[in-house]
Amino acid sequence: MSVLSVLMAAIAPGVALLSYFYLKDRYDPEPISQVLKLFLFGVLLVFPIMVLQRALVQGLGEHPFVFAFVTSAATEEFFKWFLVYFVIYKHTSFDEPYDGIVYSVAASLGFATLENVFYAFFNASGFSALMMRAFLPVSGHAMFGVIMGYHLGKAKFNPDASRKHLSYALLLPIFWHGVFDYTMLVTKTYWIWFMVPLMTFLWIRSLWKVSHANARSPLRVIQREEQVKI
């Protein structure tokens, strides 16, 4: 494969998934500039996270459970949560629950896309390996972003339970990311028997969260009132 072909194959899954979740916004699609900003910030997160993870490996070792839940899941999801919360959570463009999903998925897929590019160029892998990564790590990051964004949306538009959902927005992605990584680490030869049910569950649950977040949009009521007036 040529360099351009490898690069396109590595980038395409993240862009396709981001487009999919962006187009799922039924009532008020987010400014493309804001979505791209979160995506690019997600790309930049790769570098500080790589440095921190290297330090954690040296300090904590590479025990599968510790690596999966602390070195990998906790560091990556915390930085993504921190990014979305401090960059966009209080922004005026975050005006309905589904927006949390769009922005969290953008940050997650920015991170996953550069990670995928590094994998493509620094590991001996062919097109089939890149497609497998599209269905697993890249797709997994999108699912973790949906979980994070769903609870950020609930936190912003349900002030009475904001602390609870802000915690869920961080802890639940860490948990599922850890489960994902731990499964891949300990089931090297028969991983497919565990990953297919896990990914199926995460996709079904994520699509439910997408539908539920859209259904709770305040813009839905406004749109209906306008249609009645017409």
Rank of each mutant, 00 (worst) to 15 (best):
V3I: 14
L4A: 13
L4R: 03
L7V: 05
M8N: 07
A12W: 02
P13R: 06
V15S: 08
L18G: 00
Y20E: 08
F21S: 08
Y22T: 06
L23A: 12
L23K: 14
D25Y: 11
D25G: 03
R26N: 14
D28A: 12
D28G: 03
E30N: 02
I32P: 00
S33V: 10
F39W: 07
F47W: 13
V51M: 09
V51G: 02
L52D: 10
L52H: 09
Q53H: 08
Q53G: 03
Q53E: 11
Q53L: 08
R54A: 15
V57D: 04
Q58A: 14
G59Q: 15
H63A: 13
H63W: 10
P64L: 15
F65A: 14
F65I: 12
F65W: 10
T71H: 13
A74I: 08
F78R: 05
F79P: 08
K80C: 04
L83C: 12
Y89N: 04
Y89R: 07
P97E: 06
D99L: 03
I101H: 03
S104Q: 08
A107V: 00
A107H: 01
S108D: 08
L109Y: 06
G110W: 00
G110L: 00
G110T: 00
G110I: 00
L114I: 13
E115H: 02
N116A: 08
V117Y: 03
Y119H: 06
A120K: 08
A120N: 10
A120P: 04
F122R: 12
A124N: 15
S125N: 13
G126Q: 10
A129I: 06
A129P: 01
L130P: 07
L130K: 04
M132T: 14
M132N: 12
R133Q: 10
A134E: 06
F135S: 04
L136Y: 03
P137V: 09
G140R: 09
H141W: 11
H141S: 08
A142Q: 09
M143K: 14
F144N: 07
G145Q: 06
I147C: 09
G149C: 03
G149T: 05
G149W: 00
A155E: 07
K156T: 14
D160Y: 13
A161I: 09
R163M: 14
L166K: 08
A169R: 05
L170K: 12
L171W: 14
P173T: 11
F175W: 01
W176I: 02
V179A: 10
F180G: 02
F180Y: 15
L185G: 01
T187S: 14
W193M: 15
T200C: 10
F201Q: 12
L202W: 11
L202K: 07
W203M: 09
I204N: 11
S206C: 04
S206Y: 01
V210N: 01
A213H: 02
A215L: 10
S217M: 02
P218C: 15
L219G: 00
L219K: 03
V221T: 15
Q223T: 10
E226V: 09
I230H: 15
